[in-house]
Design a binder for these strands. Sequence first.
DNA 1: GCACACTGTGTACGACATAGACAGACCATA
DNA 2: TATGGTCTGTCTATGTCGTACACAGTGTGC
Lengths: 241, 241
Amino acid sequence: MEEHELPRVLQQLWGIEGRSRPGPKPAFQVQDIGDAAIKLADAGGLGAVSMSKVAAELGVTTMALYRYVEAKDDLYVVMLDQAFGLPPEVGEAADWRERITTWAEAFQAALQKHPWILQVPVVEPPLSPNQLVWMEEGLRAFEHTPLTPTDRMSAMQLVNIYVRGTTGLSASMLSMPPEEAAAAGKQYLRRLRGLATPDRFPTIAAGLDEPQDYIDNDPSEFYFGLTTVLDGIQTLISRRN
Amino acid sequence: MEEHELPRVLQQLWGIEGRSRPGPKPAFQVQDIGDAAIKLADAGGLGAVSMSKVAAELGVTTMALYRYVEAKDDLYVVMLDQAFGLPPEVGEAADWRERITTWAEAFQAALQKHPWILQVPVVEPPLSPNQLVWMEEGLRAFEHTPLTPTDRMSAMQLVNIYVRGTTGLSASMLSMPPEEAAAAGKQYLRRLRGLATPDRFPTIAAGLDEPQDYIDNDPSEFYFGLTTVLDGIQTLISRRN
DNA sequence: GCACACTGTGTACGACATAGACAGACCATA
DNA sequence: TATGGTCTGTCTATGTCGTACACAGTGTGC
């Protein structure tokens, strides 16, 4: 009923079949197109994904893709769903912190494996199957806590946002060779030191004397921030009791 | 010295003057180009910003822009710096929570005034003057706390990420007329209800019975999440004592 | 067996970012 | 004050992109 109002891509992703129809058989499924596009994006960033390149990858004309996908945005939807795949089951860990942490780690791993995800223009909230599974699993992490459903949604979105944000800051770095990334970091620090002079930017400058990296993406930074986020949620939980 | 290695856009934004030179006087400054681009982006989203449209806005050929800007990415840098402008001074509030809250509110206000900011592809960490002022001011909010400089940077980035994230979720909604946005929200809920059936998605479905909106962007949601984030930082502060 | 919906193809268009060559404008120096 | 050299804006051109449209062939339900 309601599902018939769904955009065609979502129908395809959810496997809602159109009845068998006359005419030649389609040569592939949207998923195949998604796979080809993901392959290109993994190799060359989202910019490397064009209709013609995807079509070439599949050995097909550009316009053939439009038999499977109404517009390029639809292709993005498919790519996202495929790239996320299924989350790990949070399962049996007793502690909600432990559960949401594995979820966050898996989320981060997906973003690091496919850094282009963060560049996909977001036009609508997610409705594709795998994304809903991630959502379900994220919410399940807060089972057996006094949080209300709305609380849980907020908490999960907070973690979601945090992971996207921290990974995003270093996302452009992820797509380059490590020594180049390190060089870029050094260069940034050098420039920042040159511009953020102690007279006009005392507070920034105060941090620049510190030995360590101060701005960026070593893995401990991830857990440091995540801890802070989870501490905030902990406070919320305590308050709900 | 070091500043001479800066990309030209940044030199221009920081007002590092090239010596007076032969040849015709430039008709404008990068800032004028930024203003024109911002005008277009405010009206039609980032997609409405093309070199030719900006040039037309200024009454000039497309290629003329390349005398001021090396590539379109440079234009984005200028746009961001102009669009953020200067943050409010956090000033005298004694409480760090109060200070960082005004900072976050101002940040959110900027994002809501220029929703396209969130669509600008981020290629490098910020080095433009106004962005550094925002950074300085954000860090200053944690003065008189036991947080180390690195802690302050992390805390500020956490708030930064949070504001970007929450505002981003509703960013596409911000650029449409309110009744249309409301309709889109309703439609999303309807579809979610249809797809997230209680058998396969019990935890999602549990929240869908709630009367209120559950997923989205009323303003109280902003403070709710912000409070959680600040509570996390509070825990960090306590731990540092 | 046949009609017709559906497939992949070819061609075409307008928008875009940017390269390169050019004509004129102006400042620093002579 | 004259002038050389350099910078400005313009014009033209190229390759890529997303997508509209018309066509020819294909295969299923009747």
